[in-house]
């Protein structure tokens, strides 16, 4: 661990392990990560850019943010340290919990627990969907956004496969939002 490069990678791994053990979800980890990395590993400007890109590109945003921070601090090996740190905690938690739960799968109380949980889970999804809608349309909600929302609602209602609907909405976005001049 005397080589300064290894030190950076090791510090990155420790930092991401910590952030992922302490934060309950991807969006929540942004705050933690900001405190841990801005000023020490990267500038505020780099961090903001990393957040922006992780929102736009496909895949889990927490993971992408971790990799951006890792890259800024330690190049490609930094990306790998960040990835490892972000993956290990949820993997361990989930596999342990899943295997324990499997034994109780047919217990009456677990069924009741899930029955009580499902309205709250549905509420959580509604809430996140609103947050997503609000954050992603940073400018005010205009007619084009409403139009896409209504069209995709109709498409889902008729049970058109969701990947097609999403692709269509994106392509529609290119046409509707692309003409706007900045």
């Amino acid at each position: 661990m005397n080589n300064p490069k290894f030190k950076v990678w090791w510090d990155l791994l420790k930092m991401f392990l910590k952030v992922n053990i302490l934060s309950p979800s991807g969006p929540a980890s942004v705050g933690f990560l900001y405190e841990e990395s801005v000023g020490k590993l990267m500038t505020e400007e780099q961090f903001v850019e990393a957040v922006g890109f992780s929102n736009v590109l496909p895949g889990s945003e927490a993971l992408k943010l971790a990799m951006f921070v890792g890259y800024a601090a330690g190049g490609i090996p930094g990306v790998m340290s960040a990835l490892l740190g972000a993956i290990i905690p949820p993997t361990v938690f989930m596999l342990v919990v899943a295997s324990v739960l499997e034994r109780f799968q047919h217990e009456n109380w677990l069924t009741a627990f899930v029955a009580g949980m499902s309205p709250a889970v549905a509420a959580l999804i509604v809430f996140v969907s609103w947050e997503l809608f609000r954050v992603s349309s940073r400018r005010r909600i205009d007619r084009r956004i409403i139009l896409i929302a209504i069209l995709s609602g109709i498409a889902f209602w008729f049970e058109i496969p969701s990947p097609f609907v999403l692709l269509g909405a994106g392509i529609l976005g290119v046409f509707l939002f692309g003409r706007r001049s900045y």
Binding site: V126, S137, L166, G170, V174
Partner: peptide, 15 residues
């Protein structure tokens, strides 16, 4: 623009 179009559709899907 693509992502801007994607966002409302994802929200509706989640509902």
């Amino acid at each position: 623009s693509f992502v801007e179009g994607l966002a409302p559709a994802i929200s509706v899907l989640m509902l």
